[in-house]
């Protein structure tokens, strides 16, 4: 009876997946970090579905099968195989596989020194309930908008002036909390020019739902000229 009901829900889910391309969607990456995570997700999703279906099938078969009578020794052996196979081998293999992808990936997302160039630094300060964006070495201060060059690694230095917020542009990279008294550094990079949406991800009070950030990614040349004109104004 089970699979007959899980199937419709799976179908619903899969049909919804066709709409993964939302402007906030993790599954619609536009930068190297987000791309890596979305690939990771699809891999883990496939593996998990396989494990889930296999275990459910085994369980239901175990409930329905008509066991032949076993000697105690035979039963013991079967039981031990199940426990060692499913309880030890399966999780350990899964964990090793997962980490061999996950650790290097996490490493690459760190704000490591970039060979041959200096990562661009932008400071973002969280307020209840708006974003203050500063470009060091210039006088530029923006509110609720962020301009970036495409194809260049950018280090976003985040902090907060009041409560904890979290800086998050799902299509570019993971999130990083903005904690008063500390400065955290998030490495992001956008592949191509375009417009993106950022959202405060840590609950920060009544205005939390509306704390949005608009991101405009320019080509590096456009970005330079934007910097200059903005500063000039």
């Amino acid at each position: 009876m089970m699979p007959s009901l899980t199937l419709p829900s799976l179908i619903i889910t899969l049909s919804l997946l066709s709409g993964c391309s939302g402007p906030q969607s993790i599954l619609n990456p536009a930068g190297p970090s987000a791309l890596a995570v979305s690939r990771l997700w699809w891999g883990m999703f496939g593996f998990s579905v396989a494990v889930l279906l296999a275990v459910m099938a085994l369980w239901i078969y175990a409930m329905r099968r008509n066991p032949r009578s076993l000697t105690e020794a035979q039963a013991d052996r079967i039981n031990r195989n199940w426990i060692i196979g499913g309880g030890l081998v399966l999780p350990i293999v899964g964990i090793v596989a997962l980490l061999s992808f996950g650790i290097p990936m996490g490493y690459r997302m760190l704000p490591l020194p970039v060979a041959g160039q200096q990562a661009l630094r932008i400071d973002v300060i969280g307020h209840q309930w708006w974003w203050e964006v500063r470009y060091p070495d210039t006088d530029i201060v923006l509110i609720n908008e962020l301009h970036l060059p495409a194809g260049t690694p950018v280090d976003i230095h985040v902090t907060s002036s009041d409560v904890i917020h979290s800086f998050w542009v799902p299509r570019l990279a993971g999130k990083l909390d903005m904690v008063p008294g500390r400065t955290n550094v998030l490495r992001i990079e956008a592949d191509a020019p375009g417009q993106f949406l950022g959202k405060c991800a840590e609950f920060c009070g009544v205005g939390h739902a509306h704390m949005m950030l608009e991101i405009e990614v320019h080509t590096p040349e456009d970005f330079e000229s934007w910097l200059e004109t903005y500063e000039y104004e």
């Binding site: 275990v55 085994l58 369980w59 175990a62 409930m63 099968r65 066991p67 076993l70 039963a75 079967i78 039981n79 199940w82 426990i83 196979g85 499913g86 309880g87 030890l88 399966l90 999780p91 350990i92 899964g94 964990i95 997962l98 980490l99 996950g102």
Partner: peptide, 25 residues
């Protein structure tokens, strides 16, 4: 992260002990 994943081992042991109980019962 490692410790969080390793919790899967005791959970797996229980899941499969339950499965085995059904299997031979």
């Amino acid at each position: 992260s490692m410790a969080s994943m390793l919790v899967a081992i005791p959970t797996g042991i229980q899941l499969f002990a339950w499965l085995a109980t059904l299997w031979t019962g």
